[in-house]
C-alpha cells in the first residue's frame, strides 16, 4: 500500500512540475507530452501491475517488475550519456569563447622604465 501512496505522490509532484514548466514556456509541446505520459504511466502502472506482466512476456522477460527495472536502467544510462555528451559540447564551446577573447586581447609586456635592457631583442611582429 505504501508503494501506491508514494507512487501517487511522486506522480502528482512530477506532473505539476511538467505542467508549470510547459506553461512558463520552458518546454516544447512534444517534451510536455512525453514527460506527462512517462510520469502518469508510473502512477497508473502501480495500480494495475499485471499490465506490465503482459509487456514483460512480450519482450521476453520473466516479470513486469524485471521489465520495468531493465527499461528504467537503460533509460537512465542513455540519459546520462546524453547529458555528459551535451555537457562536453558546452564546455568545449565555453573554452573556444574564452580562448578567442584571450587571443584577441593579447598584451605584450612592456619593460619598466627603470628596468635593465632586455636580454634578447623583442620578437618581430606577428607573421
Amino acid at each position: 500500500m505504501a508503494i501506491k501512496l508514494l507512487a501517487v505522490l511522486f506522480t502528482l509532484v512530477a506532473i505539476r512540475r511538467v505542467v508549470v514548466r510547459y506553461r512558463r514556456g520552458g518546454a516544447l509541446t512534444v517534451e510536455f507530452v512525453m514527460w506527462f505520459l512517462i510520469f502518469s504511466g508510473i502512477g497508473v502502472v502501480v495500480f494495475i501491475p499485471h499490465v506490465t506482466d503482459r509487456f514483460a512476456h512480450w519482450i521476453g522477460v520473466s516479470s513486469g517488475f524485471n521489465a520495468l527495472t531493465f527499461l528504467a536502467i537503460s533509460g537512465l544510462l542513455y540519459s546520462v550519456y546524453r547529458l555528459l555528451s551535451r555537457l562536453q559540447n558546452v564546455e568545449r564551446d565555453i573554452t573556444r569563447l574564452v580562448r578567442a577573447q584571450a587571443i584577441d586581447r593579447a598584451e605584450r609586456v612592456t619593460p619598466a622604465l627603470d628596468a635593465p635592457a632586455p636580454a634578447t631583442p623583442p620578437p618581430p611582429p606577428a607573421k
Binding site: A106, V109, T110, A112
Partner: peptide, 18 residues
C-alpha cells in the same frame, strides 16, 4: 607577469578558469 617587464612575454588572459 607584467611586473617582469620582459618584452619577450605575451600575456593571454582567460576570463574564467578552463
Amino acid at each position: 607577469v607584467r611586473r617582469t617587464g620582459d618584452p619577450r612575454v605575451v600575456l593571454l588572459r582567460h576570463g574564467i578558469n578552463r
